[in-house]
Write a protein that binds this DNA or RNA. Structure first.
Lengths: 231, 231
DNA sequence: AAGTTAAACGGACCTCGGTCCGGATCGTAA
DNA sequence: TTACGATCCGGACCGAGGTCCGTTTAACTT
């Protein structure tokens, strides 16, 4: 008993794991229908909520998307929003899900140079430029949908992008630490950086794109000499 | 009048600008004394608050550092905490300020290879490895002190690090877009990435250090061919 | 059609970051 | 020492995210 009290003070409260919340972001090959088999009322409310959220974004910007406001606008209880989307980040992510899947389809199975067929380095360049442009639109939502630091790298959508970059990088620079380089490249494409450079520093998107291509060239250049030891 | 109402709905509420809150992070060359000339009681409370905060971090981790808890532990009102440090991020940043200044001193005026005297590329390698090690300790605090996305690049401490990297980069790779490359490099050293790679992926710090040196080598390698056009 | 159950609902409730302002306190000038 | 004004203090207050749990309801069974 004492042990239980002690543990409960140290460990996270309870796994709980009833987990009815959806995990968007993965491109599913099969049915193009609605994600899971929701109960009729649940599906209806989900649609209402997404519509209401989109309207709020259009009217008051991402900052105006309060969980309570969305619930009210959708004529639904607050608890329902959280049950469906887990948290605010989940809701915002769901709003981005459509464009996300379109993008995944483009580089997974679309035409070259983004899709399969072109040389890896070429695909990398195209990938970055496309992602930069996508981030430039939707910037506000992308920023607002940024998850908390702990989860940032676990988000399915992000893992897909990362894996793709790592894969291309392994082909284009076989002797490098592709995983670390991929993280570096992904950092360059992150919405926060894009926001800072374009909105706060006023850089034109073209400069970011040139920078990306230069970056890819450096990453995939013929191998450097023997690696120098760390300090 | 209508105009005023309209504006007040669009613009941020009021500049307010009474701004008694401190701006830590800059290394001041002159007096090593306490930052501004605070009133006696203010200085006393500031010290109490920092001590209380540090104790809470030690006891319950960064997540246990609630503004109210800190205030209570310091026998001080909640408003006082905000008046002194602005917000939670400010308080956490203040906790890191000492180590921050030590680090700044090391690469601004310390002995080579970190400080002036060594070749730029060499200094860059040393800089990254040192920053990686510093982030590895203090990781929890660094993460908790991460500001909101909009301010992330405006924080003085971060600007100092960035400027330093950009400066060295301009020397080591004169023909590149040093600013963009510097942002890329800084991303590699960001606490969130370090946390993910070391804590969530279990990578040893040595691998991150090797990766950094490799990265620097690629950035400062002899110029690549003519830049390819963006896609 | 009635019964059963798992799922969904809704809103009261909690926590925590952040604001506000009347009142207490310090430093200084007379 | 007293008086005064700038600075600081404190805690009530607010908004928003997130949780909980008693109630309702869709879907399936008999």
């Amino acid at each position: 008993m004492l042990y239980a009290v002690f543990m409960s003070a140290v460990l996270p409260p309870i796994p709980q794991s009833q987990e009815p919340v959806e995990r968007p972001g993965l491109l599913q090959v099969g049915t193009a229908e609605e994600e899971p088999c929701l109960r009729a009322d649940a599906a209806r409310n989900r649609a209402r909520l997404l519509e209401a959220a989109a309207r709020l974004v259009a009217e008051h910007g991402a900052a105006g998307v309060t969980m309570e406001a969305v619930a009210t606008a959708a004529n639904v209880g607050k608890g329902t929003v959280f049950r469906r989307f887990g948290d605010r980040t989940g809701l915002l992510t769901a709003l981005l899900d459509h464009s996300e899947k379109k993008f995944q389809a483009a580089f997974l199975s679309g035409p070259p140079p983004l899709g399969p067929g072109a040389h890896p380095a070429e695909r990398l360049r195209a990938f970055g430029c496309a992602l930069l442009r996508r981030s430039a639109d939707e910037l506000e939502l992308q920023l607002a949908a940024e998850p908390s630091p702990e989860r940032r790298f676990s988000v399915p959508a992000r893992r897909v992008l990362f894996s793709h970059v790592a894969l291309l990088l392994r082909q284009a620079a076989p002797h490098a630490d592709a995983e670390l380089l991929a993280h570096t490249l992904m950092g360059y494409l992150s919405p926060v950086l894009v926001h800072h450079l374009t909105r706060q520093c006023g850089m034109p998107l073209e400069r970011l794109e040139s920078g990306w291509c230069d970056l890819v060239d450096r990453m995939t250049a013929t191998e450097t000499g023997p690696p120098s030891a760390p300090h």
